[in-house]
Design a protein around this nucleic acid. Structure first.
Lengths: 353, 353
DNA sequence: CTGAAAGCGCTTACAG
DNA sequence: CTGAAAGCGCTTACAG
């Protein structure tokens, strides 16, 4: 394609080493030479080819975030944290999306992730919301490449996550504390990691408060796109709750995106049930939706910090950061706005920002 | 770091050329040799380094999507289209985010984009929702690299976009046809490209229907984050509309994300105004929000198709695809659900999916 | 079917 | 301050 270091060197009447030095900000180049080279380079639109540099330097200056398409909104907020943290570093961010739904099975997901590691494109990888068992993670150690996990835990890789079980427990408990007794949960695809954790927390909270748990309290929706983390899935699940025999008096919902659908179902069926969900995406505030807040931005920042440290200091001890999600109370927790306002004035409630 | 082609060749007792052939699926390798090499490679976790391959092949097999952080939700849907289209090709997708807001000025944005081109990381670039004047785009031609534009137009690069002016015109007209006469518009940062186009369409629709246009009909909100494409901005703008002297009877809103805030403002102030917005993000259906639909998924697909063609056939004629956005009518267009239901049964309304 | 060799576009001691 | 040369890890005609 375009010009190379040889073209510039020839034109400037110097060796390629000197041209290289100019672009690496090596101070040992005379001002005159430097200026001349810069001028010629800019005329030719020359810049060292990234691939050639990585090869010669034996490092790429890149960090790759590996993200399932599923994580959509969640990831957008994590991403912002990564960006901001990276801004002060010498690394650039690349994003690789992998498919985790549809006809794609577990093995296939592992293969996709492995392919990314194999290509050796980056100096380090931040893997977001991808869940494997210990055996699989263990297998990846053979690539000897720095890896940091977000929203997942494995003992030998740095990680940052939120305690989902505890989060679901507190959300459910807060509903119980508000006086609701017959609580349902909107799940998603039952064997997905978040659903397993959150339904466990839900169950435990009920049992700890002498409310009988049964599988029938769990509604999973029909849509399995993105493991059921869709508006449609939440709509379907809530519809089932509203139209069933049992009359539930409150709902804990697996994710904000599903809650959006659930809210719509309540509206369509002219029924209203208190609901608390999980994530606290940026739009939830505008829906008046109570939610367990995952500090996604911070998670992105911390993970980025960890991966950079590990790239620079491969031998440091592995660290795990686990956040306790915080409940953001908004009016969806209540049967009416009046109740919400009343509650806001007592200290039992953490006001939404 | 890990093993190279030399390690594998030595271990297998062959030349590196043979190892290379195996990984390039060159049929001219004896089955025995192939199997042996594959076995050894898998034991070592060997795979050709992407950087070295690109250098030797003089192509990277990569397509980079350059995206402003601003485009968030819009981009998520475009991305899905790119993924699906890429699945059948030999290319992989990389995403590069650039900052376009905060302290970052126009020149800085150009510099960020240029840096990406310069690094020469990819065989082609899809630039999403980044707006420059002709002079700047012209300047980029010197990189002689394939570029496709989404949500932007420049004569010498392939592009796919939506006619924003026309879209705003139809949205406004549909409000007028419904009988509203005193219509306000929620803008965002006034000199951003989408706002300029959409307010022009808005203005033209009013004027064509003998409704006087004035700058006072335009409400811009205070928040300038992401050029004002935020929930908060929409909230602020709607608050101003509701609390002003003038009593407007309907609102055209610059984007769905702002409409979300506007809806919340109506709720908080216990007032309801018919509203139509622009984008039709996936959640809008669940808000009952009428919106001009941008076919984002298709735009992603088409752009991907164009860039691949150009990489393979650099000399083809430049093509431009311009969509006319389609109005998706939901109940936010009306003063009450009853009106919506009534309208649904006449043919003047395109039903929401 | 296989190997020796040139080349991709850089960086970086080393020597001066 | 500058250059010659080796090396980064591959691919790909060319010759056999």
């Amino acid at each position: 394609m375009s010009s190379t270091i040889y073209d510039i060197a020839r034109e400037a009447g110097v060796s390629i080493a000197t041209v290289s030095r100019v672009f690496n900000n090596n101070p040992k180049v005379s001002p005159d030479t430097r200026e001349k080279i810069l001028e010629i380079a800019s005329r030719y639109g020359y810049h060292p080819r990234a691939q050639a540099q990585s090869l010669a330097r034996r490092k790429t200056g890149l960090i790759t975030a590996i993200v399932p398409i599923i994580s959509n909104y969640f990831f957008m907020e994590v991403l912002a944290g990564m960006q901001d943290q990276l801004a002060e570093s010498e690394f650039e961010l690349q994003i690789s999306n992998i498919k985790t739904t549809g006809e794609v099975r577990g093995d296939d997901v592992r293969q996709q992730v492995e392919d990314i590691f194999k290509r050796g494109m980056s100096d380090g990888y931040i893997v977001v919301s991808i869940h494997f068992d210990d055996h699989d993670w263990d297998y990846f150690k053979k690539y000897e490449t720095p890896i940091t996990l977000i929203d997942e835990y494995y003992s030998d890789f740095d990680s940052v996550s939120v305690d989902s079980v505890e989060g679901a427990y507190s959300a459910t408990k807060s509903l119980i504390d508000l006086g609701y007794e017959n609580i349902a949960m909107i799940c998603a695809v039952r064997d997905s990691k978040p659903v397993i954790d959150r339904s466990n927390g839900f169950r435990k909270a009920l049992e700890d408060h002498q409310i009988e748990f049964s599988e029938e309290r769990l509604f999973s929706g029909l849509d399995t796109e993105r493991d059921g983390h869709t508006e449609l899935n939440g709509y379907q699940a809530m519809k089932e709750i509203l139209n069933g025999e049992e009359s539930y008096d409150a709902v804990f919902c697996n994710s904000d995106i599903q809650a959006l659908g659930a809210l719509k179902a309540m509206q369509d069926y002219q029924r209203s049930l208190p609901i608390i969900s999980f994530d606290d995406l940026s739009f939830s505030q505008y829906l008046g939706l109570s939610s367990m807040r995952q500090p996604m931005y911070e998670m992105g920042k911390i993970a980025t910090d960890k991966i950079i440290n590990r790239i620079n200091q491969p031998q440091t001890d592995v660290t795990h950061t686990v956040f306790s999600p915080e409940l953001i109370v908004r009016n969806s927790s209540f049967n009416s706005d009046a109740e919400y306002l009343a509650a806001k004035n007592t200290k039992s409630v953490t006001a939404g920002k």
